[in-house]
Design a binder for these strands. Structure first.
Lengths: 208, 208
DNA sequence: CCTACCGATCGGTAGG
DNA sequence: CCTACCGATCGGTAGG
């Protein structure tokens, strides 16, 4: 069921090694500079090829940006979501997912920002296909978190009258605060505070 | 005491009407397009003047960006913080501040994003004077919120053993989630959820 | 504040 | 995948 919501790959189509290398580099750069901050020439130079080589592989900057959002989504699923789907318990899986997210953003603290944090606010105000792709990826993540919260409630690990949407919202707020504040302040304190707050929120929803 | 932390104006120096008009326009644009998305030519065109007229008034794009951060900070203080400093009670003032922030981001929901949300992630990864100015403004806001939380504890309105930093962190996470999620989803639901969560967090800290 | 201009860089195309 | 090139736009300067 969950794998229907968020399967590991959502990209059909073939991709050359060059294509993969470019998109991977673009993903890392965009987490720091944003998706508009990418330039085809810079990307080409970093990878030792010509600018028109990059254009030939993608067709346009917009297509490159869309491919980059897609791979960023895949990496997020693979690194944060997939590892916890084998956890059997309801609340156990929820806690594993939350910890997985915190660890993920912790590991990235020195190496630049979060791809989705950087690009969401960048495109928030201007409708485009790239914005739609970013929003779709985020909606997918919202749905996964909600599903796992509902599962914990359904298995009786949280109070049965818990408002799943409200709980998921509060947990997401704390995960995002850890990510943005850690980048801003450069310390591990936000992750620590988010972990404390997560436990407080879960306990007030009936978690042991 | 609080007015020392966050006085209404932190800008010395004179400013022509044109300068003020340019910076105000830049502030509104940057909330949507970011501070790098600003172009001197576009700004000049919007205001019916020449590009070099803008350059003459500010000297450089960086100086314009710094002036824009400064005015964005002043507007935030004036609209969110100043109105609640007349509230006498400890917890009453804290609740007034939180509600003031929620209403502020609610009012802006249709008109584009939050200046500091848009620009913080934009500059998060690249050290610069503009980044320092953004971080300083945010640190100032963090300090104000913390001070008002501490005041509520000091006046006995919250449990005396409340961890003020932790509480301020959680409240800030909820305020930011309302702002970013409302822009992303285009609904009033995030503000509603943030209000509910704020009350839950305050009550668990002993608020009546 | 203006016109006129600078070199650099942008995304993208032609042609191979 | 490449070289060579396009028009547009960037921040900024000269000179007034």
């Amino acid at each position: 069921m969950l794998s229907m919501v968020m399967s590991l790959r959502n990209q059909p189509g073939a991709s050359s090694p060059s294509r993969a290398a470019i998109v991977d580099r673009a993903r890392r750069l965009a987490a720091v500079e944003g998706l508009d901050g990418l330039s085809l020439a810079r990307l080409a130079h970093d990878l030792g090829m010509s600018k028109s080589g990059v254009v030939a592989l993608f067709g346009s900057k917009e297509a490159l940006q869309l491919a980059t959002v897609s791979i960023a989504r895949d990496v997020f699923v693979e690194e944060v979501v997939a590892p916890v789907l084998s956890v059997a318990g309801g609340l156990d899986r929820l806690r594993a997912l939350l910890e997985s997210h915190v660890r993920y953003s912790e590991a990235r603290r020195e190496s630049g920002g979060c791809f989705f944090a950087a690009t969401s606010s960048e495109f928030a105000g201007r409708p485009s296909s790239v914005r739609d792709a970013i929003l779709a990826a985020r909606a997918e993540w919202d749905a996964v978190l909600l599903r796992i919260v509902e599962r914990a409630i359904g298995k009786g690990d949280l109070d049965p009258d818990t408002d799943a949407e409200q709980l998921a919202y509060q947990l997401r707020a704390l995960l995002e605060a850890a990510s943005t504040d850690a980048l801003r302040l450069g310390t591990a304190e936000p992750h620590r505070r988010t972990r404390i707050a997560i436990e407080a929120v879960l306990r007030s929803a009936g978690a042991p």
